[in-house]
Nucleic acid binder design. Structure first.
Lengths: 158, 158
DNA sequence: CTATATTGGTTGCTATCACAACTATTCTAA
DNA sequence: TTAGAATAGTTGTGATAGCAACCAATATAG
């Protein structure tokens, strides 16, 4: 517990130096740029693209599995899927061994789009990482992963 | 401009290793935890808190300045402000030298809340950074800032 | 001056998100 | 078996985000 209310911190919060804020701004910026590209070039939202990305990696996944994978509410996945189905980028078939479940996969068209988006994404990532040396990339990678692991273990009411 | 379409990248995108995705997940996780605290303990949304944080740092700021500072659409700031005004956490007065402008500041109550939220925020940040050494914190700091600077310079249609 | 552009701020509209309720199917345990 | 819990997925609803249109005040240019 070891929580004390002595003033070990400043009494004013400088937003620009506050880690959660900075990560949020950074992430918004980085996602925003690529979201624009996905939208303009492929008419896909980030969520839609993430669903397709999962299906590219794991064909036959269920909506629930996709939802868990990309950490997006299943209702949101459900509605995004409706659009992808309507555009025939994704198809689904009822799993015969468990008729609650629907196995999802990219259609031929969906796969064509997928194959176009993948390199664009990698190019963008590459462009971002230009500002780091090889060493820095590895460090950044490691630190991000560690922070994520650590954050997962934090109890909001600790 | 030195863009090649030779397959220097894999043909499948592994979402979990894709930087923009990882940053987004990380940021969501980190903001999500603290959002819960703000909501439960102070009935504030992240946006509302950010507005208050700016006003704590810069009393007398205008809605436009707040909006620019926290990089949130002015319409969203406007609506969030309505709530803060209704709860008497923030007050505003028309600037007499420019009657379009309204100078915002925390009320007495708002300041009390502010003083409670600040240490909670710092504690949380501290808790997050536990997983880094002093050196790693500095490195992470530097890399984040550099990446942000760099991202700002990227042309989406480059 | 006065027409026009600019700026600070609000409002309308639509899309998206979060959460809960609901349907249908399958699993579990008496 | 069969009642109740669990699971896959959809839908309803309210809150928030993002964009554009808008109003009012001010600044600028002819």
């Amino acid at each position: 517990m070891s929580k004390r209310s002595t003033s070990k911190h400043p009494s004013i919060l400088t937003l620009e130096r506050f880690l959660p804020y900075r990560l949020s701004i950074l992430s918004n910026r980085i996602s925003g740029i690529i979201a624009e590209t996905y939208r303009d070039k492929f008419a896909l939202s980030i969520t839609e693209w993430r669903i397709m990305a999962v299906l590219g990696e794991y064909p036959g996944a269920s909506a629930d599995e996709v939802s868990a994978k990309i950490q997006i509410e299943k209702s949101i996945v459900s509605r995004a899927l409706q659009k992808l189905l309507a555009r025939h980028l994704v198809e689904r078939e009822v799993d015969e061994t468990d008729r609650r479940r629907q196995n999802l996969s990219l259609t031929k068209t969906g796969m064509e789009i997928y194959k176009q988006v993948v390199p664009v994404s990698y190019e963008y990532e590459e462009q971002l990482l230009e500002c780091f040396s090889k060493n820095e990339r590895e460090t950044f990678d490691k630190l991000i992963d560690r922070l994520y692991q650590h954050a997962e273990s934090i109890d909001p009411n600790g």
